[in-house]
Amino acid sequence: MVTSTLSPSVRASLPWVLALFAGASFAQASTPEAASQPPLLTTLQYSSPIQAYQGYVEQPVQSWRTANDRVGQIGGWRTYAKEAKTQAPSSPTPDAAPVSDPHSSHHGGGKQ
């Protein structure tokens, strides 16, 4: 005599599970009507996202004086600071309370 180690609830649901799998296999079978239709004409195109990638190219070495003069013509660091200020997402509202010492919570809050 063969004894089963499955619980009674699992044994009761086993026929239903097998019937479900059998129905799913029949649902996936192709019909002769579908096989007689000509395939759809589609053209797939793939463009690689790294197709336009340009590897690192070492730039020619130039005189540091020439480089500094160029930065001076552009406007120097002040121009970059103005660009960063105009591109800032938003400045804090004037109603916000200023933080007295942002580092006061470090190392127990005491100054040494």
Results as ranks from 00 to 15, higher is better:
A34E: 07
L20I: 14
S63D: 09
T79L: 07
G109M: 00
P32A: 09
S105Q: 05
A84Y: 10
Y46Q: 07
L20S: 07
P38N: 06
P98V: 00
V61F: 13
S30Y: 11
Q45G: 12
Y53M: 05
A96M: 01
L6K: 05
R70W: 04
L40I: 04
V17Y: 13
Q87P: 04
A19W: 03
Y56T: 04
K85R: 13
Y53V: 02
T86C: 03
S30G: 05
V61W: 10
V10N: 02
P38M: 02
P8S: 07
L14P: 04
A27H: 11
R11S: 15
F21P: 09
S100F: 00
A34P: 09
F21T: 14
G109P: 02
P32R: 04
A24C: 13
E83L: 06
D95H: 10
A24V: 15
A97W: 00
K85A: 14
A67E: 02
T66K: 14
S100G: 03
H107T: 08
G108A: 00
T79W: 02
V61N: 15
S104Y: 09
L6W: 03
P89M: 03
S9T: 15
S9K: 15
T3S: 08
T31I: 09
S36T: 01
A52I: 07
D69V: 02
G109E: 01
S104V: 09
A96T: 01
G72L: 08
D101N: 06
G72R: 07
T5P: 07
G55T: 07
V57G: 09
F21I: 13
S91G: 13
V57T: 14
Y56M: 06
Q62Y: 09
S90E: 09
N68L: 09
S30T: 11
T31D: 13
S104A: 11
M1S: 09
S47H: 15
L14Q: 12
I50N: 05
Q37E: 10
Y56S: 04
G110P: 06
E83C: 15
R70G: 07
K111C: 00
P8A: 10
L41D: 06
S25I: 06
S47Y: 12
A12Q: 11
S9H: 04
Q54W: 03
V2H: 02
D95V: 03
T66P: 04
S13M: 00
H107L: 10
T3N: 05
R11Y: 14
G109R: 01
K85L: 11
T42M: 03
A96P: 01
A96F: 01
I74H: 14
S63G: 00
W16I: 13
R11T: 13
S90H: 13
S13N: 01
S25R: 15
G108D: 00
R70Y: 05
T3E: 08
P98R: 00
A29I: 02
S90D: 12
A35S: 14
S13T: 06
G108N: 00
A29S: 08
L40C: 02
S30L: 09
H103P: 01
S13W: 06
E83H: 12
P32L: 05
N68A: 07
S90K: 14
W16Y: 12
S25C: 13
L20G: 04
A81S: 14
S36G: 09
A52S: 14
N68D: 05
A24I: 11
V17T: 10
Q45Y: 08
T93E: 05
